[in-house]
Simulated assay, not measured.
Amino acid sequence: MRLLHTSDWHLGRSFHRVSMLGAQAEFIAHLVEVVRSEGVDAVLVAGDVYDRAVPPLAAVELFDQALHRLADLGVPTVMISGNHDSARRLGVGAGLMGHAGIHLRTDPAHCGEPVLLSDAHGPVAFYGLPYLEPALVKAEFGVRTSGHEAVLTGAMDRVRADLAGRAPGTRSVVLAHAFVTGGHISDSERDITVGGVASIPAAVFDGVDYVALGHLHGSQTLTERVRYSGSPLAYSFSESEHRKGMWLVDLDAAGAVSAVRVDTPVPRGLARISGRLEQLLADPRLSGHEGDWIEATLTDPERPADPMARLSERFPHTLTLVFAPEGRDAEPEVSYAERLRGRSDQEVAEDFVAHVRGSEPKEAERLVLRDAFDAVRAEETLREVAR
């Protein structure tokens, strides 16, 4: 069976105030063409279909168009909700859509109930594990600790129990939206750290033939059977080195996996350039970036006059300007976003305590902070569900 694994569409998201809707529409058209030309048997979308719980109307319309085009091809689609999605909103109409071959899995209670598809070699069971907010679903899975590993283990126990009761030789695929150990983060993923634990081990998913992951925006192979497709488009300059694409996965009669990457259309290149303003304006080595979106870091000892206007003459798509003067501590000049880049909410809070008090927080204080962040995250999720 041939599968197309994708995730993290983030429909409705912009890139530094530049609308990405046109690029997202181009991606959807490309996906449909790959499904047609490569003889894909099933499409897997591993969460974060939208960028926020209440997406703009244009994003909803694009999603609707995507579903119609995939349904028209007669190729089944299995899709889960991610941490950016409102699971209840995304899941509206799931029963009816299932009759058209669009299988939405947004309810944690149904993790052990697969979508069953077949090929010439027999059945393949597709299990959808939507994003599991530990504080909200731990009772569902009968776990005491509010951690991603615990709830995902509970969900996978249901998957393995269901699979054990099926005919011998039944192949299995799991879709999940999580941060798995070994994955590399970027600046555009929302922090899902719970209780100070940032990731879960890949061994949680043992026992199935292929795991289609979503959440991290870089395309990554954790094992031959556990992969992130990554986002089809870049949503931060930290993704400037990413090769954006999808995984075309072949699952043979015995459940062995082979996968090749299929590139997705890039609307415009990304480049991070650094140096004094006059150097950046004159350096011939930067000519290849004149059409790219630019994040520029100026190292002039003193701020030059009209730096953005002057940079834009050569690099008309300059979006971000950072000052890091040579020969001095650049920390006061670095933007707030730059200082927080790559740091979790927990780390930011602990740094603030250390800055104000002059000493690191004690372990008991760290636990209080963790519990507070977990409670806030659960409250936000409940509020999104209620919208």
Rank of each mutant, 00 (worst) to 15 (best):
H5I: 03
T6K: 08
G12H: 07
G12N: 07
R13F: 09
L21E: 15
L21D: 15
A23Y: 09
V40D: 02
D41V: 05
A46T: 04
A53C: 08
L57F: 13
L62K: 00
D64R: 14
Q65H: 14
G74T: 00
V78T: 01
S81I: 01
G82K: 00
S86F: 04
L90A: 00
M97V: 01
H99T: 13
A100G: 09
L104F: 14
T106D: 06
H110F: 13
H110T: 14
P114D: 05
V115Y: 11
V137N: 00
A139K: 14
E140C: 13
V143D: 08
V159T: 05
V159S: 01
A161W: 02
D162K: 05
G183K: 07
H184S: 11
S188E: 02
T193Q: 13
V204T: 15
Y210C: 02
A212V: 03
L216P: 00
T221A: 14
T221V: 15
L222A: 04
V226Q: 00
S229L: 07
S231V: 07
A234Y: 08
S240I: 11
H242L: 10
G255I: 00
R268F: 04
S274T: 14
L277F: 01
L281Y: 05
G288C: 04
E290F: 07
T297K: 03
T299W: 07
D300E: 02
T320F: 09
E326K: 11
G327A: 05
P332Q: 08
S344P: 04
S344I: 10
V353I: 14
V356F: 10
G358I: 03
E363M: 09
L367H: 10
V368R: 13
D371L: 10
V376M: 14
V385N: 12
